[in-house]
Computed example of a mutant assay.
Amino acid sequence: MLRNSTWRLDETNLANFGSELEKEHRKEEGALETAWNYEGSPIGHEPGLWIWRVQNFTLLPVPIKQGGQFYQGDSYIVLKTTQKEGSEALVHNIHFWLGKETTQDEAGTAAYKTVELDDFLDSLATQHREVQKHESSQFKSYFRTLTYLQGGFDSGFHHVEEEEFHTRLLRVHRPSSLQGTRTQNAVVISEVALNASSLNAHAVFVLDTGDVVFSWQGAQSRGVEKAKAAEFISQLISERNGKGEMVVVEQNTGGQKAFWDALGAAEEEAQVDDTNDEDDDSTTADEEPAREHRLLRLHSGMLGRLKLDVVAEGKISKDMFDSKDVFILDVSHEIFVWVGRDASRKERRHGLQYAQDYLKESGLPPFTPICTLLEGGEDELFEAQLEGWQGW
């Protein structure tokens, strides 16, 4: 069932969640969440990838074999834990992912649970907000493919209906933004309208009828898209205990009648688009024109009022940061909120909100990733933005 989205992008930052709660209370609340705190839980103790899907204000674990599949009507939390090179220390990255049709209460649950998980991890995690089709490169690197599926759990405020299988058409496409990156062989798989007008000669499409899964290969599609479509279909059949058959159909060749019948269209009447249409809304912040880095300092001014001042533009170095304050680092494709260990409670509380306000005024896209990290918990992506980084 298609749902109208009721969440607002500018209301999904972590600054709006948990700000009235004491840290110790949040720590206790985080420890009560059985999604990550259960007997023998490896979370917080060893490297790994964990995914949860929001349903009725609670979190349901997603099997790792379904990693990378996201319902656009839902919200998710993804935790990636790695071991820091040359150290026994663990680095935690928490991402809350918002589908374009998720509801405000689901988005809010994902954001609040992200805070709880961070508290459970002793506030050492880096937190990220991810928006469908505008995910950060770091998030994309966790999965071989990103798959967007229609539907999702209904909100806890509404009646819940069981998800039923339906014939669906999915587009397998490698965005040009991934070319030349370490994720250059990754693709995005998006469910599209079930009709012939969705087809494009520059992509591969998967028509899933349940018993038969077609791989329709556009005449100008890439080899990586064909390979990833075959991989995706094999995974589908495996999840169905081997039930189903894969059929490959090449554009402009014979033997396509079964495909067109399943699509509910007549081949001779179908007009396949031959233009190379990169999805406009799949543009990421990484594709924005590069500009100089900018560092801003959030601190208490006269009468205790918070002030945000520009510290430097261009080359940013470690010695520009001060443990007594909160800093916002704008690197064009992402905004970091760095929280000094001695920053005031007020500065800590409002850092993300100031970053959101800055984003609105900066001219950057509203979906630009924002992440917060504490002094001493910096990750490689943050470190790479500074000149001559050698640790704190």
Rank of each mutant, 00 (worst) to 15 (best):
R291V: 03
F327I: 00
D273F: 05
N16R: 15
Q72D: 13
G68M: 01
Q66N: 14
L169C: 06
A290L: 10
F153Y: 15
G67W: 07
G40R: 11
D280F: 10
S221T: 11
Q251V: 03
D280A: 12
Y112A: 13
F143K: 05
E334Q: 15
R305F: 12
P42T: 07
T103L: 11
D325Y: 10
T145G: 02
H173Q: 11
G218T: 03
E378F: 04
A227L: 10
V160Q: 15
T283V: 12
S41A: 11
D357R: 11
V310E: 15
G210A: 08
D281M: 11
M302K: 14
E163Q: 14
E334T: 14
S197Q: 14
N4L: 08
D279R: 12
E239P: 04
K226C: 07
G391F: 00
N252R: 14
F327W: 01
M302V: 12
S234R: 13
E268P: 01
I370K: 08
P42S: 05
F232V: 00
P61E: 09
D119S: 14
F214M: 06
I233A: 05
I328R: 01
T209D: 02
E387K: 13
V172E: 03
S300H: 06
E106D: 14
L381S: 12
L60C: 06
W36N: 02
E267N: 06
L60P: 00
W50P: 01
L352T: 13
P42K: 07
V78R: 07
G151A: 12
R53L: 09
L308F: 03
T58M: 10
P63L: 01
L117H: 03
M302W: 10
A265C: 09
S141H: 07
F157M: 12
D309F: 02
Q385F: 00
N37I: 04
Y112G: 06
H166M: 09
M320G: 05
L98N: 10
H333E: 13
A312G: 05
V248C: 03
K226H: 08
E347N: 04
E101H: 14
G108Y: 03
R349C: 02
D322V: 03
S282E: 14
F153L: 01
R305G: 09
G244L: 01
H134F: 06
I370M: 12
N4K: 10
H45L: 13
Q179P: 00
A193P: 04
D286Y: 15
E20M: 07
G30Y: 08
E46L: 06
F139R: 08
G99C: 07
K324Y: 04
D119P: 00
L149M: 12
Q127N: 13
V311Q: 03
D208V: 02
N13A: 02
D357T: 06
S323Y: 02
F165G: 08
D279K: 11
E267K: 11
L98E: 03
N37P: 04
R182W: 08
